[in-house]
């Protein structure tokens, strides 16, 4: 075959052809090809069409994605010369998930109110401390309990008889949520405030 003949001197690579990329019918097929910077050479029987993407191992690490912009099927002459030449087009734009950064403006309003000035002035320890104090004050107000710290949290979020019920699910899952959040609220009082 073409690749067996030509590949011996030029070298071949395993590449992945992605047909109908980005659609529900996307299909991936690993094939052998001779890859050059402007073109790739495939066996004439390899199903590759214009618009397909081709993933090629990048010698710098990772994979390089190229687009088959022109596909030329050469099936004339001796069968060992039959091949498909694919000219590479511009690489598709990488699909990068938008980065959502953790910023002060995205925090809960109560946290912003309690910690804003201190945070802006660079008093990080006090800012964090005030934020957790705002949590304690709120839990005390909502639960109408005359307790503080981890004791308050244990009572308010008690999984068996919660004063404030934070579960969003039913049954066993809800019970796990209550216990989990009670531990988080207690931890916030014990370890951080």
């Amino acid at each position: 075959s073409f690749l067996r003949t030509m590949g011996r001197s030029h070298g071949t690579k395993q590449v992945v052809i992605i047909s109908k990329p980005g659609t529900e019918d996307e299909e991936r097929r690993t094939v052998e090809a001779m890859i050059q910077s402007e073109s790739g050479f495939f066996e004439v029987t390899t199903p590759i069409y214009e618009g397909d993407h081709v993933e090629i191992p990048d010698p710098r690490g990772g994979t390089d994605v190229r687009v088959a912009s022109e596909v030329k099927v050469n099936d004339f002459g001796s069968s060992t010369l039959h091949h498909t030449q694919v000219k590479w087009g511009k690489a598709p734009a990488r699909r990068v998930a938008p980065v959502r950064r953790l910023t002060f403006e995205n925090l809960h309003p109560d946290v912003q109110k309690a910690a804003g000035d201190l945070f802006a002035d660079g008093h990080m320890g006090s800012a964090v401390s005030e934020a957790f104090k705002s949590l304690e004050v709120r839990v005390r107000r909502l639960s109408r309990l005359d307790q503080s710290g981890s004791t308050l949290m244990s009572t308010a979020f008690n999984a068996k008889s919660p004063v404030i019920d934070v579960a969003t699910e039913d049954g066993r899952s809800g019970q796990d949520e209550r216990e989990g959040f009670m531990a988080l609220f207690r931890g916030a009082m014990i370890g951080i405030r």
């Binding site: 910023t103 800012a127 705002s134």
Partner: peptide
């Protein structure tokens, strides 16, 4: 360290949001 402080504040924020689910005045 502002980044670390921000992460702690995010934790406090998470707990506040959980209470929001049950607090009618939130």
């Amino acid at each position: 360290d502002p980044q670390q402080a921000l992460e702690y504040l995010a934790f406090a924020s998470l707990l506040h949001r959980r209470i929001d689910l049950t607090d009618p005045s939130a």
